[in-house]
Nucleic acid binder design. Structure first.
Lengths: 150, 150
DNA sequence: TGGTAATGGTTGATTTTGTAACTATCAAGG
DNA sequence: CCTTGATAGTTACAAAATCAACCATTACCA
């Protein structure tokens, strides 16, 4: 059987292409507006969503590598959008949270994100999007467990 | 409305996480076996699938940037997995195709890919996978058209 | 024709990422 | 206590991706 493989239908390939296409369009917007990278935007959003978090918690939520997070945190800190607080009991741990300025930036970008979502709903329809979303959620839930182990 | 935005449900974010999780697992396998990068594997696969292609055609099929393709082509050429042929009519154009060794490598990795697909089917079920796939195809078709324009 | 724009592809410089090793702190067991 | 091992987070170095500028060639059109 020389050729029973179709790259174009290969799930990793498709997922990557779709992800690139969808998020590139959005990345351009917050990049143009704030000069922010994706890890920075993600970190900002996670903190805006969840309040205080440690770097490790951000990693668990987002599957971003430690080093990405570390650098994103520093960058946000330098903009005065985020501040660190040492944990009282465990001095290895730092709690991270947005400053008021960071909160404002978050809300501003969150608005861009909502607009973009509406745009996508317009393009694909509510239902198509919802079923896609369900599939993705399943993939993430299953594999992120496996990922933690290696 | 201070906080009507949920990053975790945001499509670009979800797509990226799913794509990363799914393709990282697979990337490790061909990387360990051949020391190949993703653009190289993609280029190999596209040529194995479609036969002769130009670099531009590869770009159109895969949404990879020119420079990635250029470097992947050179790397494959250095392994003697690929050869170039000048176009007769248009001297800017190069046609690319796999050598027999490249063809064998392709078939070998294609087998890894099929195994991986089977693994995913086992994890998620044929149906869930098919419906996810349908959604992704739709996204790709719609946005890659928009992408070409800018 | 000849000049300007567009296309195919490459290269070099810069930025981002990933990998590994490192510091500092805490946990557990003897 | 003291050693061994785990955990939180940073950093140095290598690999990869992006960006911009660049040839060479071809297409368009006044």
């Amino acid at each position: 059987m020389p050729d029973e493989f179709d790259l174009d239908a290969f799930l990793p390939y498709r997922l990557n292409r779709a992800a690139e296409l969808v998020s590139l369009r959005f990345a351009r917007r917050y990049r143009d507006r704030y000069g922010m990278t994706r890890p920075e935007w993600r970190t900002l959003a996670l903190l805006g969503n969840n309040g205080r978090l440690t770097a490790t918690a951000i990693g668990a939520l987002s599957t971003m590598h430690k080093t990405k997070i570390s650098r994103a945190v520093r960058a946000l800190e330098e903009r005065h959008w985020l501040r660190r607080q040492a944990d009282v009991d465990d001095r290895r741990v730092e709690h991270l949270e947005l400053t008021p300025a960071g909160q404002r930036a978050y809300e501003d970008i969150a608005r861009l994100a909502r607009d973009y979502e509406a745009e996508l709903r317009g393009l694909f329809g509510q239902n198509a999007l919802a079923s896609l979303d369900k599939g993705l959620e399943r993939v993430i839930a299953t594999l992120s467990r496996a990922h933690e182990k290696g």
